[in-house]
């Protein structure tokens, strides 16, 4: 059944509950390619650089996204370590990589039949498991918890983390799955 033909920026809503059924995002392909490249570059410092450091009795200790996951593993919380790693590292990076591949396939007009559809399906599967914003609030909560008792210093990792998170938010706003699905040819 054909969808209503919408211009970029228009939306279609359900007749019964007014929920948005379809929304055409403006300039989706170019934007998601640009965001995906920026996000992938930022992901390296965001994951490995220390987000903040704490000084107490002249001993310095730091935390980064990867060291937080590793610390959970060392504390024998294997399950929590694995899900945290998935929610905050693999899911966002997976989304960026897939958005980049799909965007490039469309831009170069070479949609590969055997990879295109599985990649969209995989993107949809990991989409709801990405939790960078929650981790961001987690950083804020820990800052407030420690602020009174210790000296905290913020590092370049915090800046990269915030930018990494913003690139994921931007991807959410520009990546248009319906548009990607519409490029699939239907053989009747």
């Amino acid at each position: 059944m054909p969808y209503p033909v919408l211009k970029e920026g228009q939306q279609a809503r359900c007749r019964q509950c007014r929920h948005i059924v379809l929304y055409r995002k403006p300039n989706p392909v170019n934007r998601s390619v640009a965001i995906a490249i920026a996000g992938l570059i930022l992901s390296v410092p965001a994951i490995f650089l220390p987000i903040m450091s704490m000084k107490m009795f002249s001993i310095n200790s730091t935390v980064s996204l990867s060291s937080a996951v590793y610390a959970l593993w060392l504390n024998e919380l294997y399950f929590v370590a694995v899900v945290t790693c998935f929610f905050c590292i693999f899911a966002p990076i997976g989304k960026l990589v897939i958005a980049l591949i799909l965007g490039l396939q469309i831009k170069m007009d070479q949609i590969k039949r055997n990879s295109y559809m599985p990649l969209i399906k995989f993107y949809q599967k990991i989409d709801s498991w990405e939790m960078l914003e929650v981790f961001m609030i987690g950083i804020l909560v820990s800052i407030f918890k420690l602020r009174a008792d210790a000296d905290l210093f913020f590092d370049l990792g915090l800046v990269s983390y915030i930018l990494f998170m913003l690139s994921i938010v931007a991807l959410k706003l520009s990546f248009d799955k319906e548009l990607l699905w519409n490029k699939v040819v239907i053989n009747d």
Binding site: T62, A71, V80, T84, F87, F135, I137, G138, V141, L146
Partner: peptide, 14 residues
Amino acid sequence: MLDVFVVAILVSLV
């Protein structure tokens, strides 16, 4: 998941 992430950060930092 917020509290779990806070635990992860504190365990690693402190």
